[in-house]
Amino acid sequence: MVTVTINVNGEKRTASVPPETTLLRLLRDDFNLTGSKLGCDVGDCGACTVIVDGKAVNSCLMLAAQADGRDVLTIEGLATMDRLHPIQKAFEKYASLQCGFCGPGVIMSAKALLDENPDPTVQEIRDALGGNLCRCTGYVKMIEAIQDAARILRDEPVEINR
């Protein structure tokens, strides 16, 4: 067993887990943060994407112990009680998710992108979503939503384009 302490969504949490436990399992099974999903467990689908120290990572590929002492942001840490994050709002508005299983991962990838690059081009958004697979919706509406969220985060007026 290893003891892991991470700063998750702004809160220090500790758990004692078998050494082979991935960060994804730690979040889901020990911290009950089930927003991050397990789609493949081998780093192909991006459903498990979370942000570790500002970078989007596949939490199924990171051992819990590797995250020890680091800052982890999951989908649950994005909204506050009274306010959705602009990306979440835009995803809702643009109906960017159908079954929703890929959603938390996609949104976290988008968040990591917008934190680093507030005004990404469509190509840059595509690149940022390169590791996230969606089988239902496709990516067009997601890209629209991310552009919309980026404008809001930059404090630009947003016009609804349809």
């Binding site: 927003g35 989908i75 959705l84 995803f91 809702e92 998710l97 959603g103 938390p104």
Partner: peptide
């Protein structure tokens, strides 16, 4: 244009 009713929870994880 219709917004999915379940979209809200999906986006929140």
């Amino acid at each position: 244009r219709a917004t999915r009713l379940d979209g809200h929870l999906h986006g929140l994880g």
